[in-house]
Computed example of a mutant assay.
Amino acid sequence: MEAEYEVRYKGCTLSPIAFGDGEFYTAMVIIGTPDGEQRASGALGQFACALSARQYALACGMADVDHRDPPLPDWPVRIELRQFAHRAKAV
């Protein structure tokens, strides 16, 4: 897994990463600080395409540098439909 590009943001280096995970792409970001420290976000969510995953990872990295909450993803991550315990009777 490698970052395809790096973005400079407020003195930090953000490396958004998307890696294939079955039919989805998992997003994560590596943040490099000006003093040489690096930290990885861990998995940030799963997305339908690599571009969406990298865009979200970049937005999360910017939020981390700004010390604010990460954005909500615009792609629902694996929607699970609940099964009903009782079926409705036909009338």
Rank of each mutant, 00 (worst) to 15 (best):
M1H: 15
E2L: 12
A3K: 14
Y5H: 15
E6G: 14
V7W: 11
R8K: 15
Y9C: 11
Y9M: 07
K10L: 08
K10N: 13
G11W: 10
G11I: 12
C12L: 11
T13E: 15
T13R: 15
T13I: 15
T13N: 14
L14K: 13
L14C: 10
S15F: 11
P16I: 10
I17L: 08
A18P: 11
A18E: 05
F19Y: 14
G20P: 12
G20F: 07
D21P: 15
G22A: 05
G22W: 10
G22F: 08
E23L: 11
F24E: 13
T26C: 10
V29G: 01
V29C: 02
I31P: 03
P34F: 02
P34D: 08
D35I: 10
D35N: 09
E37P: 08
Q38F: 10
R39Y: 06
A43W: 02
L44V: 01
L44M: 02
G45C: 01
F47H: 04
A48F: 06
C49V: 11
C49R: 05
C49F: 01
A50H: 03
S52V: 04
S52K: 13
A53N: 07
R54S: 01
Q55H: 08
A57K: 10
L58S: 00
L58G: 00
A59K: 13
G61H: 03
G61A: 01
A63L: 02
D64E: 10
D64F: 07
H67L: 02
R68W: 00
P70F: 04
P70R: 14
P70E: 07
P73S: 06
D74K: 14
D74C: 08
W75T: 07
W75M: 01
R78H: 03
I79V: 10
E80M: 06
E80H: 12
E80K: 09
L81C: 06
Q83T: 07
F84G: 00
F84H: 14
H86Q: 12
R87S: 08
R87V: 04
A88T: 08
K89Y: 11
A90T: 13
